[in-house]
Design a protein around this nucleic acid. Structure first.
Length: 872
RNA sequence: GCGGACGUGGUGGAACCGGUAGACACACAGGACUUAAAAUCCUGAGAUGGCAACAUCGUGCGGGUUCGACUCCCGCCGUCCGCACCA
């Protein structure tokens, strides 16, 4: 019987309408079922969805649909990370208001996401730029301020004098603003900070329990927090050389064991000691100024020379009052780490060694590497930072560095300088407080009012939200909020005097740090509905790009803890499990005249050798060079528009292809032939299902008493596929699940023409299993087949079947037989066969006898159900 | 420099806890159907030698452990990513 082709675009629309009408993806709290909060990182509404979105949301949707079928009460929401700079740039370039631009993009992208057939609860959708969202963020901000987790302080920023704005480090290119080209100034501005460092230790400690996070993410977060154990050591300054009023300098060190190898002390150009010394020394002042001016970009730092300036001041060694070392101002000492001052031990620190070689200071080795002769040990061009035995260190000699560390700490803690202990143990962190002030319009207004007498006063609850004014223009540089005629002029909520509204807005990372919580009750009058949050949180699985492995995840972790401290939440961590997906890559194409071409402008054929791929430009017929496979990007032009694929092939095809072939955590290469294969599979499944229905048993027919071998084999394949597909989806190995569904489809196709006892029943069973297995990945086709199979219920609402355990293990198995580790034959034998039976059968195999060549058998290793190895 | 990941046919990848390497898919070749094409279906295929049976080699390179290594250990090489003067 001939069957119509499956009309994907038409049927997909139909099933999406059915799902919407029945409202089946709406999530409700239900204590009778286990909950599952499945979340993918919400998109920035930049204009259109791209393949990265398709991959992200497909991976999550397959999981959400599978978990739903497994009986979980699933929350799977979607929203918009809608504040941000691109909207302001669009306003600048196209004279369109950021809100209009943003909401138009949201409308487009919502339509595109819906065309993918995602099982999203759209009733919970929100955009972070909506006052109904950010008013609660303002409330959280004020509560965090009251809890001491928000504060203001002066901070150095990159100031663009033309744009009148602060620039991120990435926006400073060779010392100039990326947009204006103006020389960037370092300005000290009062800025708002989150006190994330207050939680350094607990943010670090909890990482140890993250067994369902990628290891690399945990490692990167550990490094980012950067805990180190050290000692604060106060060095007295030689009074004869020190500036007036300065008696000491405090350094931070993780290697107090190497103190007897010290040859200098160095301070940052911004250190008070440097400033005091520069006050009386014009050349030093000029040196400090030069250090401040030099770039802070990674590239510049890498090549920057280690430079120092001898202040003439001498510092007294804390373990020997008779020993002094010079104090330098050095460009490589950072003011905002430790104390902004260090002591240098060149023998055991490469950077110190480089510095000392330049300025001719002594190098004293104090750690002797193992199995090295003390008399001949010397430091050349390379510092030694390994373990060993202390030497040249008086009372430390012979100790390990670790023991020496403790001994120095003990002695210095006990001795005093100016009536206080010389040293104290100190744990330091690389993590800095989170600067969130942005001198921008399109962000969440910071809800504070500056009053000359009361200081920074929070906006009262009743006055929230502080809404962005809509009547702003972008025709001049700077922050529109600053120059708005009325917005910032308000009265102090505390004393009533004339005051000034804060015009900074928040870093958009703040918006995305708690949206996961808001999804649990997006309409709640308070930031959090504790019943809803208590039911749904934490997120059971979070899926998104690797680029957010550090900051976004860390900030969301911080917010969760801060919301607990301020009484909004009762959990510590937002994500039980995190998964980071790879990117979508594609070949690049270059025409002879150097133009990059898009994939749709290029036709690929196979060359005369049958292997080489040949590309031609469709419009001109000219040859095209196939370039490297790279991340899809507009500049490389190697982008494929998801809309085109969905229109042409349908959503199921794009979903199937994007999870095929490559493991989800690796990059996936988009190929035209791969999409065609996915499109073919859609039609093939439809044909197979129809043919199987023609030849199969009626829906609900009684299971026959027995099955012939062909029917039995099909049943085994079907049940194994069912078990494997479920397991692989749970482990986010979608590509393997896809391969297994192919295997079942192949088995079904191979069995269709065969007649065997019980075959009609087995055909229907295998077909239903295949449809259910592909349902989470190709939900529309799944529904269509399900209806064709005679069901008037939805596949989406049908429980995931339990495989028959008896069919998952074979009675007869095939095991390999090796001779001296080389496979020589295979053996079909009962699964329950004893070692002796297996050995006898294996030794009787003709190929095995031949391979033994009459040699004496030393031993036979038999691993039942696995392998036999004959050793001769 | 520090940290992390990866390396398997022409291609993407599979291989559970150390047990038949190459599942599945792409590309390719041959065949069926067709006047023909498209679509579809079937078959083949790691490399080398051989008509074949079969043999040898084979998971980046070099060692090691083991009856047996893509898998574990040691040392290299290469690619990619993150951080980067952190005392």
């Amino acid at each position: 019987m001939a069957h119509e082709r499956y009309n994907a675009p038409e049927r997909e629309k139909h099933w999406q309408d059915v799902w919407t009408q029945k409202d089946i993806f709406r999530a409700r709290e239900d204590g009778s079922r286990p909950k599952r909060y499945q979340l993918e990182m919400f998109p920035y509404p930049s204009g259109n969805i791209h393949m990265g979105h398709v991959r992200n949301y497909t991976l999550g949707d397959v999981m959400a649909r599978y978990m739903r079928a497994k009986g979980f009460n699933v929350l799977h929401p979607m929203g918009w990370d809608a504040f941000g700079l691109p909207a302001e740039n669009a306003a600048l370039e196209r004279k369109v208001h950021p809100a209009k631009w943003t909401y138009e993009n949201i409308a487009t992208m919502r339509r595109q996401l819906k065309s993918m057939g995602l099982s999203i609860d759209w009733s919970r959708e929100f955009a972070t730029c909506d006052p109904s969202y950010y008013r609660h963020q303002q409330k959280l901000f004020i509560d965090m301020f009251k809890a001491g987790l928000v504060y203001r302080k002066g901070a150095k920023v990159n100031w663009d004098p033309v744009e009148h704005t602060v620039l991120a480090n990435e926006q400073v290119i060779e010392g100039r603003g990326w947009r204006s080209g103006a020389l960037v100034e370092q300005r000290e501005l009062e800025q708002w900070f989150f006190r994330i460092t207050a939680l350094s230790e607990e943010l670090l400690a909890a990482l140890e329990t993250f067994d369902k996070w990628p290891d690399y993410v945990v490692t990167q977060q550990i490094n980012w927090i950067g805990r180190s154990e050290g000692l604060l050591v106060r060095w007295a300054l030689d009074a004869a050389t020190a500036p007036q009023g300065l008696g000491e300098v405090e350094v931070y060190t993780t290697r107090p064991d190497t103190l007897f190898g010290a040859s200098f002390v160095a301070v940052s150009p911004d250190h008070p000691l440097a400033k005091a010394a520069a006050a009386g020394d014009a050349r030093l002042a000029a040196f400090c100024e030069e250090c401040r001016r030099s770039g802070t970009s990674a590239a510049e730092l890498e090549t920057a020379e280690k430079k120092g300036f001898d202040t003439g001041i001498r510092a007294v060694h804390p373990l020997d009052p008779a020993w002094t070392v010079p104090v330098y101002v050095a460009n490589f000492v950072l003011m905002d780490y430790g104390t902004g001052a260090i002591f240098g031990c060149p023998a055991h620190d490469q950077r110190d060694l480089d510095f000392v070689r330049k300025y001719g200071l002594p190098v004293i080795p104090v750690v002797l590497p193992p199995d090295t002769d003390a008399a001949s040990f010397a430091i050349g061009a390379t510092a030694y930072d390994g373990d060993g035995t202390m030497i040249n260190s008086r009372f430390l000699d012979g100790l390990t560095p670790k023991a020496a560390f403790d001994e120095v700490a003990r002695r210095l803690e006990a001795s005093t300088l100016a009536a206080a202990p010389v040293a104290a143990r100190k744990t330091n962190y690389r993590l800095r407080d989170w600067l969130i002030s942005r001198q921008r319009y399109w962000g969440c207004p910071i809800p504070f009012i500056h009053c000359d007498s009361c200081g920074a006063v929070p906006v009262p609850d009743d006055d929230l939200p502080v809404k962005l004014p809509e009547d702003v223009t972008f025709d001049q540089p700077g922050n529109p909020l600053e120059r708005h005629p009325t917005w910032k002029h308000v009265n102090c909520p505390s004393c009533g005097a004339k005051a000034r509204r804060e015009t900074d807005t928040m870093d958009t990372f703040a918006d995305s740090s708690w949206y996961i919580v808001r999804y649990t009750a997006p309409e709640a009058a308070t930031p959090v509905d504790s019943a809803a949050a208590g039911y749904w949180l934490p997120v059971d699985q979070y899926i998104g790009g690797k680029e957010h492995a550090i900051l976004h995840l860390l900030y969301a972790r911080f917010f969760t803890r801060a919301m607990k401290i301020t009484g909004h939440l009762r959990i510590d961590e937002p994500f039980s499990s995190v998964f980071t997906q790879g990117i979508v890559i594609h070949e690049t194409y270059k025409a002879a005249d150097g133009r990059m071409l898009m994939p749709i402008e290029v036709q690929i054929t196979t060359g005369p050798d049958g292997v080489t791929r040949v590309a031609t430009e469709i419009a001109t017929g000219n040859p095209v060079t196939i370039g490297p496979v790279e991340k899809m990007s507009k500049s490389k032009k190697n982008v494929v528009d998801p809309d085109d694929i969905i229109t042409h092939y349908g959503a199921d095809t794009i979903r199937w292809f994007i999870v095929s072939d490559s493991p989800p955590d690796r990059d996936v290469q988009w190929t035209e032939s791969g999409v065609e294969a996915a499109g073919r599979l859609v039609q093939r499944v439809w044909r197979l299902v129809n043919e199987a229905i023609d030849k199969g048993a009626e829906k609900g027919a009684a299971m026959p008493a027995g099955f012939g071998p062909e029917a039995e084999a099909l049943r085994r394949t079907a049940h194994k596929t069912l078990a494997n597909v479920g397991r692989n989806i749970e482990q986010l190995r979608h590509n393997v699940a896809v391969a297994q569904i192919y295997e079942l489809a192949n088995a079904l196709a191979g069995t269709l023409g065969k007649s065997d006892e019980g075959m009609p029943w087995a055909l229907r069973e295998a077909t239903e299993i295949m449809v259910q297995c592909l349902g989470p990945i190709m939900p529309h086709l799944g529904e269509e087949c399900w209806a064709r199979l005679g069901y008037n219920t939805l596949l989406t609402e049908h429980p995931w079947p339990t495989p028959d355990a008896a069919l998952l293990v074979d009675d007869t198995i095939t095991i390999a037989v090796q001779v001296n580790g080389k496979r020589r034959d295979e053996l079909k034998i009962a699964r329950t066969a004893s070692r002796q039976e297996i050995e006898t059968a294996a030794l009787g195999l003709e190929a095995v006898v031949r391979a033994i060549e009459g040699r004496a058998i030393k031993k036979v290793i038999v691993v039942p159900q696995r392998i036999v190895n004959v050793v001769v």
